[in-house]
């Protein structure tokens, strides 16, 4: 029975984990590009970037759940990141993280596995030209 649950857990739970990871990565890619595309060196551009990311219609967990806890950060050099940049004129990169995709585990927890699994994702995009850099 233990072995059976372990095999089912591998197929069912790990399958969902891989899907969630893939969905989250595609989302952060799109979100980082969306944010970078809105950057124009003004405070309004930074605000538009945040707003555009919040309005992205993509979902995760087999397309059923909205992403929550999304973090949008900006940087002038791709090294030092700020959520609320003090000098918006130099902001040329956008980084989007989706850190709280908490997937509930169904079968693997019965054989000693975790009860949930967090599947984070992060992407970085430059604004001129708008391209994914990480």
């Amino acid at each position: 029975m233990f072995l059976l649950l372990a095999v089912m857990g591998m197929a069912f739970d790990l399958g969902r984990v891989y899907i969630a990871r893939n969905e989250a990565q595609v989302f952060t890619d799109a979100a980082a590009m969306t944010a970078a595309a809105k950057l124009d060196g003004t405070a309004a551009g930074v605000e538009r970037a945040r707003d555009a990311v919040a309005r992205l219609p993509m979902r995760w967990n087999l397309g059923t759940q909205e992403f929550t806890g999304i973090v949008v950060e900006f940087s002038a050099d791709g090294v030092k990141w700020e959520t609320n940049p003090k000098t918006v004129s130099g902001a040329a990169y956008a980084r989007v993280s989706a850190p709280s995709n908490n997937l509930e585990i169904t079968f693997l927890r019965a054989v000693g596995g975790p009860s949930s699994f967090t599947v984070p994702a992060r992407s970085v995009a430059g604004s001129n030209p708008v391209r994914l850099t990480e």
Binding site: M33, T34, R59
Partner: peptide, 11 residues
Amino acid sequence: SGRPSVEFPFV
């Protein structure tokens, strides 16, 4: 039907 679905900005 209708999923998976992605939206990317046109750049």
